[in-house]
């Protein structure tokens, strides 16, 4: 860090040429001690996971064991992960939008309209399909690959696609007067994300209110079959995760595009001097 201005470069590459092959060798040597690839008797496959595999469907009503583990057995962990994602969105908001001195700036898209008929038509056709597929991935997460995280990211990517082609989602924001901007503004995305994380914690607290532990959904008064109750609560959790992820993706995109417009130069053009 306190190195002289340009003297450190050669030293750094020499050091790297020695250190990183050594690191690689160490990793490979360590991996020689790991159980064979695909060994059904490896410790990872014999301790907790048999219980998940054999009992998950009967206990939680979810045929997709990954969803069962994610939203039910390890629901507390997933609450933390969701909070991390939400915090990343908030952090970006504080770094870029709030520090810019404008309390509630309108959400700009990327600054320039593309104005192409092909792009415009392709977006009109693709975006509804993407958004609908996102909701399908969320709802079908019990019985096929999918769930809140995947669906939320898909939904967010659909929103980003519209922002990129049609511009920001505020009044008069579209580049094409005949196209109405759709999708939440920055404020709307933030509200979505908040609703998601609050809903997640709320389902956990509701389970406590009915006499169970935090996030132990079995006690919720949603029916008599415990597996079915857990299935419904899992769907609620996945929907909350969906909202948080979709909202956070929107917040991240909007704040970064605000920041890029204010700094004036797109990030990609910075190459820096090469020596």
């Amino acid at each position: 860090m306190g190195a002289p201005r340009h003297g450190g470069t050669r030293m750094r590459w020499l050091l790297g040429a020695a250190a990183f092959p050594a690191l690689f060798l160490g990793l490979v040597l360590g991996m020689a001690e790991l159980p064979e690839f695909g060994d059904p008797g490896s410790p990872a496959s014999t301790h907790v996971s048999p219980r998940f595999i054999e009992d998950a469907a009967a206990e939680t009503g979810a045929a997709n064991m990954v969803t069962a583990v994610l939203a039910d057995y390890r629901g507390y962990d997933t609450l933390g992960e969701t909070a991390v994602i939400f915090a990343a969105g908030l952090g970006c908001l504080v770094i870029l939008a709030a520090a810019g001195g404008r309390p509630n700036p309108p959400a700009p898209g990327m600054s320039h309209p593309f104005g192409s008929v092909i792009l415009d038509t392709a977006t009109r056709i693709l975006v509804p399909v993407v958004l609908l597929f996102a909701v399908y991935v969320l709802i079908h997460g019990h019985i096929s690959p999918g769930g809140g995280f995947q669906g939320g990211v898909l939904f967010g990517s659909g929103l980003i696609m519209m922002r990129l082609v049609w511009g920001p989602a505020h009044e008069g924001g579209t580049h094409r007067p005949d196209v109405t901007a759709f999708g939440p503004s920055l404020r709307g995305s933030l509200i979505l994300a908040c609703a998601g994380i609050l809903g997640y914690a709320g389902i956990g607290l509701a389970a406590m209110a009915f006499g169970g532990e935090f996030l132990n959904y079995g006690t919720l008064p949603l029916g008599s079959d415990p597996a079915h109750v857990r299935e419904l609560a899992t769907l609620g959790i996945e929907a909350a995760v969906f909202l948080t992820v979709a909202g956070t993706v929107g917040v991240l995109f909007d704040t970064i595009s605000i920041g890029m417009r204010e700094s004036g130069v797109p990030l990609g053009s910075d190459r820096g001097p090469r020596e």
């Binding site: 994610l70 962990d77 970006c92 870029l96 769930g147 995947q150 990211v153 920041g259």
Partner: peptide, 21 residues
């Protein structure tokens, strides 16, 4: 890993925000 992927997306977004700043 499912959660790790989405967390990595968000941390990348936050890092990009810092880079813009």
């Amino acid at each position: 890993m499912l959660t790790a992927i989405v967390v990595s997306v968000s941390t990348t977004g936050l890092a990009l925000g810092l880079l813009v700043r």
